[in-house]
């Protein structure tokens, strides 16, 4: 038992002392293994390459491995660009960034630059959509409708929004009715409880403020002082948003990009990135909302 404890005790410093490039590459491959992507043709190839990269340390920094992954993830996007997730696009850019970093003289600086700018621009566009382009975001409508209609958020809407099952179902029935044009006279539309409206408002502003702040600090020209803020904001985003939003693949990818841009001298944030990577895995396996719902209503 003593040797096991020692082994775990030594593992943490070993991982945090690993160079940023090695850690970011391993986390990217792990993300590919934990959340496989692509159709029946591309998926086995991506999984096979990711498994090889993790199992054979000699392959980890081979540019051909990452160029191939960039092509495969790119194919996955190009073949079905209308339906591919945004994180599929980001994954493709990131694999290309890794491949280019590995053929350049200063791998670490190239990867750090790409990690920082890819996060910055992705969050800048996400903020632009929310702040300026979407007509139904800032007034809270988006989260009100999402919480009612997306079954993945049903328990969260009840637990945090104070909806009963009956009120959730009647509101869902109301907003999902099929309409071409306008509804005829609506008599007594179901009302949303004040707590639910408050929750939607909080989610709206929490998300857009955090995403906007991340965009600004990651796109601001590199300065030592901003580095701490970057890591803190990205870690806060991943630790909070993915507790509710079931898109862990995006979370793991952001962590890999975050590690790559993290100041190599700072061990604590690197450890925290690893902890949040594990936390997102925990969220996937034991969703905190389901757990809390079961805890509050044991029957």
């Amino acid at each position: 038992m003593k040797t096991d404890r020692w082994a775990i005790g030594e593992l943490v410093p070993q991982i945090t002392e690993m160079d940023s490039v090695g850690l970011a590459l391993r986390l990217t491959l792990l993300a590919l293994l934990l959340r496989p992507i692509g159709n029946w043709m591309i998926r086995p190839l991506i999984l096979g390459l990711a498994a090889l990269g993790v199992a054979l340390p000699g392959l980890l920094r081979k540019p051909w491995l990452w160029f191939t992954l960039a092509v495969l993830t790119g194919l996955r996007v190009v073949l079905d660009w209308q339906l591919a997730d945004n994180h599929g696009y980001l994954l493709c850019y990131w694999c290309l960034a890794i491949a280019l970093a590995l053929v350049s003289r200063d791998t670490c600086a190239c990867l750090a630059l790409n990690g920082r700018l890819l996060i910055g621009w992705a969050f800048a566009f996400a903020t632009l959509w929310k702040l300026a382009l979407s007509p139904d975001y800032l007034d809270g409508r988006f989260f009100r409708v999402l919480l009612l209609t997306d079954l993945r958020f049903a328990e969260f809407a009840q637990l945090a929004g104070g909806l009963t099952l009956d009120s959730l179902e009647s509101l869902r029935e109301f907003v999902t009715q099929h309409v071409d044009g306008q509804l005829f006279a609506v008599l007594n539309p179901p009302r949303e409880p004040a707590r639910f409206l408050w929750l939607a408002r909080c989610m709206t502003w929490w998300t857009v403020i955090l995403e906007g702040a991340i965009a600004i600090v990651f796109l601001w020209p590199a300065k030592q002082r901003l580095s701490t803020l970057r890591d803190a904001l990205l870690l806060t985003f991943c630790a909070t948003v993915y507790a509710v939003a079931p898109v862990e693949g995006f979370g793991w990818l952001l962590i890999a990009l975050g590690v790559a841009q993290c100041d190599p001298a700072r061990r604590r944030p690197r450890f925290l990135y690893l902890a949040v990577f594990a936390l997102i895995l925990f969220y996937r396996e034991i969703p905190p909302v389901e757990w809390l719902a079961a805890f509050s209503h044991p029957s």
Binding site: V77, W81, Q82, L83, A84, D85, N86, Y89, A122, F123, F125, A126, W129, K130, L133, S134, P135, D136, Y137, R141, F142, V145, L146, T207, A245
Partner: peptide, 15 residues
Amino acid sequence: SPWAGGGFGMFSTME
């Protein structure tokens, strides 16, 4: 759709 096409408009609209 803002959700599609690699523009990072997901979770911003019901469109």
